[in-house]
Nucleic acid binder design. Sequence first.
DNA 1: CTGCTCACG
DNA 2: ACGTACGTGAGCAGC
Length: 953
Amino acid sequence: MAKKLFLLDALALIYRAYYALIRNPRITSKGRNTNAQFGFTNTLYDLINKEKPTHLAVCFDTHAPTERHTEFVEYKANRQEAPEDLLDSLDDIKKIIKGFNIPVVEVDGYEADDVIGTLAWQAADQGYEVYMVTPDKDYGQLLIHKNVFIYKPGYQGGDVEILDAQKVCDKWSIERVEQVVDILGLMGDAVDNIPGIPGVGEKTAAKLLKEYSTLENVIANADNIKGALGEKVRNGKESALLSKKLATIITDAPVQFHEEDYKIKEWNKVDLIEVFTELEFKTLGKRILGDEFNVFQSTTVAVQTEMFAATTEPKENGQKDLFGNDVPAKTPAKAAVAEPVESGFNADKNINNTPHEYILVDTDEKAKDLVQKLLKEKEICFDTETTNIDANDAELVGMSFSYKPFEAYYVPAPADQEKTKQLLEIFKPLFDSTETTWIGQNLKYDLLVLKWYGIELAGNIYDTMLAHYVIEPEGRRSMDLLSAQYLNYEPVHIEELIGKKGKAQGNMRDVEVEKIKDYAAEDADITLQLKYALQPGLKAKEVEKVFYEVENPLVKVLTDMEFEGVRIDEGFLKEYSRILESDASDAEQNVYAGAGVKFNLASPKQLGEVLFEKLKLDPKAKKTKTGQYATGEDVLLKLAQTNPIVDDILTFRELTKLKSTYVDALPLMINRKTGRVHTSYAQAVAVTGRLSSNNPNLQNIPIRTERGKEIRKAFIPRNSDHVLISADYSQIELRIVAAISGDPNMCEAFKQGIDIHTATAAKVYGVEPGEVTKEQRYKAKSVNFGIIYGQGAFGLADNLGISRTEAKEIIDNYKKEFIGITKYMDNTTNFAREHGYVQTLMGRKRWLRDINSSNFTVRGFAERNAINSPIQGTAADMIKLAMIKIHEAIKKEKLQSRMILQVHDELVFDVVKSELDIIQPLILENMKIALPLPNDVPVEAEVGVGDSWLAAH
DNA sequence: CTGCTCACG
DNA sequence: ACGTACGTGAGCAGC
C-alpha cells in the first residue's frame, strides 16, 4: 500500500473554519463559540476517515518572528488581532490533536507553510504521496515535486478538492507550477500585506508570465512593455522581487521528516471524549467515537470536565481565602488540562501489564478463610453484583473484595435467598468490625443492597466516587472513565456481560460465574487502585476536610433515608387525579372554543402558532433558539390581558403538569415490598455540593400554588402512631451571605431577629422598619434573592415588572447600604480570578475556568457562579453536617423515628408520637450548631408537626 | 434524543 | 451588540 502523508496547516484551517460559520455560529449552552474547533475536527476526521492516511502531522506557526518579518516590516502587519473566540479555540484544538494522537510540528522562526514545504519534499523524496491540507493557494508552488498535492477541505457540505500541478496551473492560467511564485510576486497578496506591483492583478500577472515566463524576465523586459502597464512594472520591480521572495515557501527549514513519528497511532479516546463533551459535539462525537461516546456519556452530568491539574508549585506564603484559611497553591484558571496527579502508587504498573490474581470463593470454607484474612486488613475495597440497578429491588449475585492491588476475591451468592442470608452470616464478623474502612465506588448502592438483607457495615466509608466529586465537582465519574483517566486502563464493560440497556439487557444472575468473577474482581481491584490514585488529589486540592467530615459520613445517612422511604396515600392521589383530569379538560375545551380551532394544547409549537399567527396576539413572542415561538409562563402572563384563553392555557398547563409529573407518577413508584416510595439521592452530581433527588424526585414536590400543595397531603406518616415533622432553616442562604461578607447592617438585622426583607427595605428606601410597605418589602425580598445569584438591573426589572431605571436605583441603594455585601461580591470574583476557584466554609471548592475569559457572556456566567457557589455550597455543607449529627443522635438514643427526606434547607422525619418531645429539640439543636457561622450570625430553624407533609409545614 | 416547559430550593 | 439569576429532575412533543 502506498504511504500517504497528510500535513495540516492548522491555523489556516482554523481561520477558514471559523469564518465559514461566522453567520451561523455554533454556540454552546455556556455561550462559547466553537466554530473553529468544530470545523477543524470535522476536517481532520473526514480526511482520516476517507483518505486513510498512513502518516499525519499538524503544523502550527509560532509566535517567533520569521525572516520575512525582519526583511519586510510590513509583512502581515495589516493583520487584525484574531477574534477572542478563535484564540480561545487553540487550546481545545491542541487537545483534540493530542486526542487523535497526531504530532504537532512547529519551528520557531518559520511559518507553517515553510515547515510543511520542507517536510513535504523530504517525504516525497522517500516515495510518499504527500497531501498538504490547506485552503491557501500559495502552496501551489510546492507542487513542483510530483508526489506532492494540495488537499483543500470542503466547508459546509462543499466537496474536498485535491489539486495536482495541472489543476494549479489551470487555476492561475499559467503553464508551470514554478510560476506560482512569479505570479504572487507580481500581484502581491493583500491578506499577507505583500505589495506586489500595484495595479497588477491575477489576470495581468498571468498575461505577463505567458509572454516572459518568469518574473525576472518580465523585469528584464520592462522597457519593452508598452503603456501604463510598462510604467507600473518599471516602478514596481523591486517591490515585485521582494514580494516573490516573501511568497516563496522555504523548503529547507530546520526540520527533519521521521516517518516513525508521523505514523497513524491509536487515539486517546478519553481525551477526545472529554473535549468533545465540553464542546458539546454530540453528533460529531458520536460519529467519531461511536458507542464509546455513549458509554462515557451515560451519567447525568453535563458539559464541563474540570481540570485535575496537579500543582507542584510551592504554596504562596500568606495566601488567605475569603474565610481567612490558607489556600492551596495557585491553580491556573485557564488552559487547564486534565492530567492525573502523580500518585504514590506506581503508575507504570497497570492491569494490562501486571499479572493479577482474581480468586473465586465458592465454598463456605473458602469464605471463612477469606473473612479471617480480611479481618486483619484495615482497608478493604468492596463491591456487590446484583440483579437490578435499583438497589431497593435487587438481589445479591455476588460480592468482591480487594485489599491489595492486582489481587481480588469474588464470592458468588446463591439464587436461593435463604442461602444467601446464610452466606452473609459468615461475613458478619467482618461487616461488624469497627476497625475496617470500606473503600468503594458509590458505596451507598452496596450498603442499600446489604441493608435489605439486614446487614450494616460498622466501619468507616471511603467512597472513590465522592473523592472524585470533591476533587473535580463538574467532572463525570463513571468507573470506566475514572479507570481510563487515572489508571490508564479500560475495564471490562458491564455490557459485555449482560448486554446493552433496554429490552435486550440480560440479568447478572444468568451470567456464568467465571465471567462475573473476572468482571467483579476487577472492579474491586480497580476501585482500590483508584483510591490510591485519587488520594494525592485530595491533598493537593485541599478538599480532605469536606471529603472526610461531610461526604463520607453522609453515605450511611442517605442509605438509611433511602431505605426508609416515605408513605404515600395512593387513594388520595387517585381521587385527585380525577379532579385534575376533569378541570384540565374544561380548561382545554375553553381554549379550543376561544381560539376557534382544535389543536394539541400540550404542544408548545402548535400553541405558539395559534397564539401568534392565527390570533395574532401582542406582544409578539420572542422565538426560541430553534425558531419556535416561546410560550413559557412569563410570555403567557404578558398576554393574559389580551385574550381570555390565556388564563385557560395557564390553568391547563398547571393541572396537566401536576397530574402527569406527580399525581399519576408517584403511585407508580411505590415499592411493592414496602408500600413506600424510596427516592434516590445523588451525592456527586450537583456542582455546588447540594444533593439531588431522583426516581422519583422528591425535592420538587409542589408547594407554591393552592392546587399544587394539595399533593403534599399525600405524603403521610408510617401509621397512626406516627406523625411527620418538617424542620427547615430560616433564610439560611442570606444568613450565610451576611456571615461570610461580614456586612454590619445585615449581620445586625439577623442578630436582632428582625425580618430580613423588612430590614433590607428599610435601608434601601431610607425609612424606619415600622414604616416599610408591603410593596417595599416585596421588592426588597426580590433584591435579596437576586443578590445571591448575581442578578443585575435587567433581571430585577424583569422580575418585578418595574423599569430598569427603578431597578438600577434600588440596586445602587442596596449596594450603598450593604457595603459589606458589595465588597463580598468584588472579593469573591477577584479571588476566583486569581486562584481559579471559590470555596465554601468547609473548603468545598468549585473551579471556574472561564472567570478570566474576555467573552462577556462566558465570564458573566463564571462571575455569578463565583458569587453564588460559596453561598449555596455552604448551605449544603451545613445541612449535610446536621443530617450526620441527627442520624448519630437518633442511633445513640435508640429512637424509632427516622429522617426520611431532605429538600436543601428542610429535613422531614417520620416520627413516633411518643418520641416527639425528645426528637424536636434534638433536630433543632443539631441543625443550629451543625456549622457555626462567622461574625456570630445566628442560625435559626423551625419545626412543624402534622399528619401530612402539608400539615407539618 | 433534544428542546421546551415547569416543579422545587 | 451582546444577554441578562444560581442549582436541580421529569414529562412531553417532535425530530
